[in-house]
Amino acid sequence: MTDATASAPVAAAPAHRSLWADVWRQFRAHRGAMIGAGVFGFILLAVIFGPMLWTIDPGETNLRARNQPMSWAHPFGTDNVGRDMLAQVLAGGRVSLAVGITAMAVSMLIGAAIGVLAGYFRRLDGPLMRLTELFLALPILPLLLVAILLFRDTLRANFGPEAGVFLLIVLIIGITSWMQTARIVRGEVQTLKEREFVLAAQSIGTKEGRVITRHILPNVLSPIMVSATIGIAAAIITESTLSFLGLGFPPDFPTWGRLLFDGKDFMTRSPGRVIWPGLFISLTVLSVNFIGDGLRDAMDPRIRGR
């Protein structure tokens, strides 16, 4: 049974349903995915609208309220210079989610594109895989230092200090983390390419572009989904390493990874400083994972038919 035959009964069904409506129906039936989407939506709403409701400035220090435990005035407590943790977690979430999702998207786009091209077109395989090896071997830290040296001032001048750094970080994380995805996708495509349904599609003269989008891509979705889940977590954490090294956002710019890093030495004294950012990172990754699971199942023609 191939893709083509699998979709045949759907097309023949009396009420015409589009592919995407079908995917959505299947997705809704996936309980984990729905819960994941709910949690993710909640986190998104919280970080977007939260700072409007909880109006304490995350950067405001209060030297009389240092290391406070949870209270009504500070639901998540305060840090060692008296900054409100809730405000910091909300503000940090905006940055971390934006960095995580965008960097992951960049990395998946590059990784999937290179993987598919290298796996499908044999003559591209050599050069693209050598390129992958080059990127795998590059030491990230010096690369960052050089990128910041070369581009920071230009980006800062064109986009302002924050947006400039954001672009730089997203691009750097994106272009240094696509290699694993590319290798995995390439491996999968190499096997898929020899499968009957692809050969069949090719033999009836389907254009190569269409073979790739219609037959190859849907079948390599699951490793991509896994990479994407791991990618979000990795990007959020890489960002924290960057700020820790002084290569990331300005120091008065909280992010989840950085809050976790700064809080780790206060773990026994004020556990809230690590629990909240840690919890939000984990919840985000967990919910993205379940959404990914649901999407994969929903997109899989073999499962969807049932």
């Binding site: 959020i236 954490i237 924290s240 990172i281 985000t284 967990l286």
Partner: peptide, 22 residues
Amino acid sequence: GTFISMLGFSIPTFFTGLLLIV
């Protein structure tokens, strides 16, 4: 298994390491 592995890659090693030491 899913839950634990999610924790595994969303919690950075600088944190798990310190937690184990404590």
